[in-house]
Design a protein around this nucleic acid. Structure first.
Ligand SMILES: [Fe+3]
Ligand SMILES: [Fe+3]
Length: 913
DNA sequence: AACAAAAAAAAA
C-alpha cells in the first residue's frame, strides 16, 4: 500500500555528511557552529554498543538475549550494534535538520520534529517494504528506535499511511534515500545480515536499554570532540568503515573511563573473603549452597539482626554470580539511612576482594549530600592508599539515572522499583539491575504495595535470569512464597510450592531452571537461644490518649535509683513529645539528673542525624554504660538505629514490630556483664491501651496500624501468660500464628475484613501502576503506559506516603534565618542571568534544616508561592515548602497556621502541632 | 478527618 514510497535510488556517495547528528557543545571560539555528521554519531553508538556487549554486559544477560532473539552470541551482538547504528535515523528528516541548518538540495516539507518517532515510523515501514523484512520484526525494530528517548510507543497502523508519512517528511525523495543510505551503510560496515527469529517485548526492553546506554556514552561532548578530527570527507563504505574502526579502537577505554566495568571478585573460602570464622548462618551456607547453585536462582535468608547476614549474603552472591554469569552487585535496602551505613561496609569488602577498578555507587535521592559530606571529611587526607581508588565513582556515574550502572551499587529498594513503574527510562534502569546479582535486605519491612512492586521486579529478574538474594528477619510464610512464586514466573497471587517452608533462622534456595527448592534450618545451639519476657502493662485511655506516666514511673524508677538505659517508643509524634515533657517534669520532681533524649522524624534532618549518631555511638556495641539515660522515641528507632538499651518500653504494635523493638534491648550479649542489677533478663514492656479488659485504641492509632493486627497481637502476648519467648527458636511460629490463628480475632472479624481490604487495595494499586510482568506484555507501550501523561509524578514507589519537605525558618526585616536568634541566614543564590546558582554546601544546609511533613498538613499552593527567589528553578529546592515564622511585637516567633493546625518549632521537641 | 516511617523527582 505504501510501497511506492520506498522506491528511489540510493545516493552514490552513501550517507550525506552534511546531515548533522550532534552539535551541542561544539561551538567554535568565534561562535560558528561545528556540526558532527549523523552517520558518525551512529557509527560511534554502534561501536560503543559493541563495547558494552564485550566489556560490560553480563554473560547471563548476553545468553538470555541471544536465546530470546534466536541468534548466536556473535549475531546478537551484531544485531544490537545495528540497532544502535540506526537509533537516530529519524534525524535524517527535515523536521530535525531544520533545528540547526536545513541542507541544500533537500525538500523543505515535513513536520516531524521528534526524531525518535520519525525513526520509529520510517524504519518500521522501510524494513518491511524496502528490505522485505517480515512485519513481526520490522514493527518491533521500529518500536526500539522509537523508544530510545525512554518512552515506548506502539504505532497505529494508520500512521504508516502514505499521506501521513509524507506530511511528517518521511516520504520518498532525497530524505528517504538518505535514511536508506544510512541504514544500508550501517549494514555494510557492520556486516549485519542475520535478523532475529523473533523480537519479544522483553528483548525490546533490553536491546533498547543497551542502545540508550551506548547513545549516552556517544553523546558526551568531550567524546564527540575527540572523534571530530577523524570525520571522513565522504560517506563511502570504506571511509565509514575506517571511521568505525577508529571508534571501536577507543570504545573499551571509553567504557573503562566512564566506570562501566565488570565486578570480578577474587574467589576464596569464607575466611579468605572476610578474615574471620563463619558463624552459624554463614557456615550453613558455605557448606550447603555451592552444590545447589548451577545457574540463576533465588536465595531467601531469614535470621536475626546481628547474625552476620550481610557477610553471608556477599558470600552467597559470589557463588550465585559465578554460576549465573552476572557482572555486578546491587545491594538494596528500605531506607536511605540503612543504605548510607551499608556503603562503607561494602567498600571495605571490595577493596580487599577486587583487583580492578570497580566503582561503588550510592543510589538514593540524597546520595549527593552523603558524597558532599564524605568529601568534606576526607578533604585533607589525600588519596591515602591505592586500593582506596578502586571503588571511586567516576564522573559519568555520578548522579541521575546513570548512577545505577556502577558495577557495584548500594541504595534504596525504590531505585530498583522505579524500573517496573511506567516512567521515562524505566527500561534503562532495568538493564542496570539485570546485569547484576541483586541483594535485597530487610524484606520484612515492606508493606503490601512495595511487596507487590517488588514481586513485579522479581518476576523480571527471574525472566532475565538474574540471581537474587532476599534477606529478612522473620517473614510470614505467605510473603516468602509469594515472592518466590513471582521470581519463578508464576501468575500474580500464586503462593507457589510451600512444601519446603522457610525456617527461622534458616534459608531457602530455589533453582530457576528446575524450580526445585531446598530449605535449611539453622541449628541454634541452646546456649544461643535467649529468653525474652514480654510484659503486658495495661494503661488507661482518656481523651488525651493513652495514660503512660504511671506505668513509665513504675518501670523507670530503678533506673533513677541506680543507673542504666531505657527507650520508650510511642505510636505518634505528638505522644512522644508529650511523654518527653511528662518524663521531664517527673525527673525534676525526683531531683534526678538522668538524661532525657527525644528522637522522632518531625525535627530538622541535621538534628535527627546528630541525635541518632550520638546514641549509636554511646549505646552501640562498645558504649559507656555508666550513666542514666532515657530515650523517648517513635518508630524511627526500629530501623537501622543500632543501639543496646537495658530496658525497652513500647506502645502496643503489631507483633513483628514488637520483636524488632525488643531487638534494641539487651542486644549484645557482651554488654550483659555491665548491665545494672535491676535488669533481670531481657524484658519488653508493652503498654496496652485498655478499658477494663478490652483493648481501646486511641483515636490516631488506627491510622498507623491496622486494628486487626493490634487485636491479634494483644491477645497473643496476653496469652503468653508471662512465660518467656525463646528467641530465635519460637519467633517464626509466633509470627505465623499471629497472622493465621482465627481465635485471635474472634469477635472482631470486621476489623480483619477492613485490614484485608486495605491490603488488597494497596496491592491492587501497585499492580495497576506497575508495568506488566514478563510474558504479559501485550504491547510495548504498556511499559510506558500512556507515555504522554506519565512524566514522573503520577507514580510512586510507596503507598500513601505523600510527604513534603518543609523548611521552618524565621523572618526578620524581610530576611530568612534558620534559627530563632537570626544568626544563621538561609543562603540566597547568586544569579547568572536568570539562573540561580548555589554552592552545593549551601543547598546541603537548606536541605538539612528541612522537616518531612505529611502533605495533608501542608498548604501546598500557598507554600510554593512563599518560596524565596530561585527555589523553583532548582531541582532540590523546587519542592521544599518554607514555613515562615514572623516575630510579634514582644519579639516572640508567631506560630504558623496551616490546614487547621498551629505549627511551632522547638529546639528540643522539634516541630509542634 | 485523623496519621509512623519510609522514597523520588535531567539527558543526550
Ligand atoms: Fe536520539
Ligand atoms: Fe543519539
Amino acid at each position: 500500500m505504501c510501497g511506492e514510497f520506498w522506491v528511489g535510488e540510493l545516493p552514490d556517495g552513501g550517507p550525506d555528511l552534511v546531515l548533522w547528528g550532534k552539535s551541542r557543545g561544539l561551538e567554535e571560539h568565534d561562535g560558528s557552529l561545528v556540526k558532527y555528521p549523523l552517520v558518525c554519531h551512529l557509527l560511534d553508538t554502534a561501536a560503543l554498543a559493541g563495547a558494552v556487549w564485550d566489556d560490560y554486559l553480563s554473560l547471563g544477560l548476553r545468553g538470555w538475549l541471544s536465546k530470546e532473539l534466536g541468534l548466536s552470541a556473535q549475531e546478537s551482538r551484531c544485531f544490537v550494534m545495528f540497532m544502535a547504528g540506526v537509533h537516530d535515523v529519524g534525524k535524517a528528516s527535515p523536521g530535525f535538520q531544520r533545528k540547526v541548518a536545513m541542507p541544500n538540495g533537500y525538500p523543505q516539507e515535513g513536520d516531524c520534529t521528534d526524531h525518535a518517532r520519525a525513526g520509529h515510523l520510517w524504519i518500521g515501514a522501510a524494513l518491511q517494504h524496502k528490505l522485505g523484512i517480515p512485519r513481526h520484526l520490522s514493527v518491533r525494530v521500529g518500536e526500539i528506535v522509537g523508544g530510545h528517548h525512554g518512552v515506548f510507543t506502539t504505532a497505529d497502523p494508520k500512521d504508516f499511511k502514505a499521506d501521513k508519512m509524507k506530511a511528517h517528511g518521511l516520504g520518498i525523495g532525497a530524505w528517504g534515500r538518505q535514511r536508506l543510505a544510512h541504514l544500508e551503510a550501517m549494514r555494510a560496515v557492520l556486516g549485519f545480515d542475520h535478523w532475529p527469529r523473533e523480537i519479544t517485548h522483553e528483548a525490546q526492553v533490553i536491546v533498547c536499554a543497551i542502545v540508550v546506554l551506548a547513545d549516552w556514552l556517544a553523546s558526551r561532548t568531550e567524546y564527540v570532540k575527540l572523534r571530530l578530527p577523524d570525520v571522513p570527507e565522504m560517506g563511502r563504505v570504506e571511509q565509514l568503515k575506517r571511521f568505525f574502526d577508529g571508534s571501536g579502537d577507543r570504545a573499551s577505554a571509553e567504557l573503562q573511563q566512564a566506570g562501566l566495568t565488570r565486578l570480578q571478585l577474587k574467589p576464596g573460602t569464607f575466611v579468605d573473603q572476610f578474615g574471620f570464622e563463619p558463624n552459624r548462618l554463614q557456615r550453613s551456607l558455605e557448606s550447603g549452597l555451592p552444590a545447589l547453585v548451577t545457574g540463576p536462582g533465588l536465595l531467601i535468608m531469614a535470621e536475626q539482626t546481628g547474625q552476620g547476614k550481610t557477610e553471608a549474603a556477599l558470600f552467597a552472591a559470589g557463588i550465585m554470580s559465578e554460576a549465573a554469569g552476572s557482572a555486578g552487585l546491587s545491594f538494596l535496602l528500605p531506607t536511605m539511612a540503612t543504605s548510607n551505613e551499608m556503603e562503607p561496609r561494602l567498600a571495605s569488602f571490595l577493596k580487599e576482594r577486587v583487583a580492578n577498578p570497580t566503582p561503588l555507587n550510592l543510589l538514593h535521592s540524597m546520595a549527593w549530600l552523603r558524597r558532599l559530606k564524605n568529601e568534606l571529611e576526607q578533604g585533607d587526607s589525600v588519596a591515602s592508599q591505592a586500593k582506596d581508588m578502586l571503588t571511586v565513582v567516576t564522573e559519568w556515574l555520578s548522579g541521575g539515572k546513570k548512577a545505577a550502572f556502577a558495577p557495584v551499587s548500594v541504595g534504596t529498594i525504590d531505585q530498583a522499583l522505579l524500573s517496573v513503574l511506567p516512567i521515562r527510562h524505566n527500561a534503562f534502569r532495568m538493564l542496570a539491575f539485570a546485569n547484576k546479582t541483586i541483594i535485597i535486605d530487610e524484606v520484612h519491612a515492606f508493606d503490601e504495595y512495595v511487596e507487590q512492586l517488588l514481586s513485579t521486579f522479581l518476576a523480571w529478574c527471574g525472566h532475565l535470569r538474574v540471581p537474587v538474594i532476599l534477606m529478612s528477619a522473620t517473614l510470614p510464610q505467605r510473603t516468602a512464597s509469594r515472592l518466590t512464586a513471582a521470581y519463578l514466573g508464576q501468575p500474580v497471587g500464586a503462593v507457589g510450592d510451600i512444601s519446603a517452608a522457610l525456617k527461622y533462622p534458616g534459608w531457602r534456595y530455589v533453582d530457576l531452571e528446575s524450580q526445585k527448592s531446598t530449605s535449611e534450618a539453622i541449628e541454634v545451639a541452646s546456649e544461643q537461644q535467649r529468653e525474652l519476657f514480654i510484659e503486658v502493662h495495661p494503661c488507661g485511655v482518656s481523651d488525651s490518649g493513652m495514660q503512660r506516666m504511671a506505668a513509665l514511673k513504675t518501670h523507670l524508677a530503678p533506673l533513677l535509683d541506680s543507673r542504666g538505659s531505657a527507650a520508650v517508643i510511642c505510636t505518634t509524634v505528638d505522644e512522644a513529645q508529650q511523654t518527653y515533657l511528662g518524663l521531664k517534669t517527673w525527673l525534676a520532681e525526683q531531683g534526678s539528673d538522668a538524661e532525657l533524649i527525644l528522637l522522632h522524624a518531625r525535627m530538622p534532618l541535621h538534628r535527627r542525624d546528630e541525635i541518632t549518631s550520638d546514641i549509636v555511638r554511646r549505646f552501640g556495641k562498645k558504649g559507656d554504660r555508666g550513666g542514666r539515660t532515657i530515650i523517648v522515641s517513635t518508630q524511627v528507632i526500629e530501623q537501622s538505629v543500632d543501639i543496646d538499651m537495658d530496658l525497652m518500653v513500647t506502645d502496643l504494635a503489631p507483633l513483628e514490630l514488637l520483636f524488632q523493638r525488643a531487638g534494641r534491648g539487651c542486644r549484645h550479649p557482651e554488654n550483659d556483664a555491665y548491665r545494672p542489677k535491676w535488669v533481670k533478663g531481657h524484658r519488653l514492656v508493652v503498654l496496652t491501651p485498655q478499658q477494663g479488659d478490652e483493648l481501646a485504641l486511641p483515636g490516631g492509632w488506627i491510622y498507623v496500624y491496622p486494628e486487626a493486627a493490634m487485636i491479634r497481637t494483644h491477645r497473643l502476648i496476653t496469652g503468653l501468660g508471662g512465660l518467656p519467648v525463646q528467641v530465635p527458636g519460637e519467633v517464626q511460629d509466633l509470627v505465623d500464628t499471629v497472622h493465621t490463628d482465627p481465635s485471635l480475632i474472634a469477635g472482631h472479624e470486621n476489623a480483619e475484613v477492613t485490614s484485608k481490604a486495605y491490603e488488597l487495595v494497596a496491592a491492587a494499586e501497585a499492580i495497576r501502576k506497575s508495568i506488566p510482568r514478563p510474558g504479559h506484555v501485550s504491547a510495548v507501550q504498556l511499559l510506558s503506559k500512556g507515555a504522554n501523561v506519565i512524566d514522573d509524578e503520577m507514580v510512586s514507589t510507596r503507598f500513601n506516603a505523600d510527604s513534603v519537605r518543609v523548611l521552618p525558618c524565621f523572618r526578620r526585616d524581610g530576611n530568612l534565618y534558620f534559627d530563632e536568634e537570626c544568626e544563621k541566614p538561609v543562603p540566597a543564590p547568586r544569579w547568572r542571568g536568570t539562573d540561580p546558582i548555589w554552592l552545593r554546601s549551601e543547598l546541603a544546609s537548606i536541605i538539612e534544616h528541612t522537616i518531612p511533613l505529611r502533605t495533608s498538613y501542608v498548604d501546598h499552593e500557598a507554600g510554593l508561592a512563599a518560596q524565596p527567589d530561585g527555589w523553583s528553578k532548582n531541582h532540590l529546592l523546587k519542592r521544599v515548602i518554607p514555613l515562615i515564622f514572623d516575630f510579634n511585637a514582644d519579639g516572640d516567633p508567631q506560630p504558623v497556621r496551616m490546614r487547621g493546625n498551629n505549627f511551632r518549632l522547638d529546639a528540643k521537641l522539634g516541630l509542634l502541632r
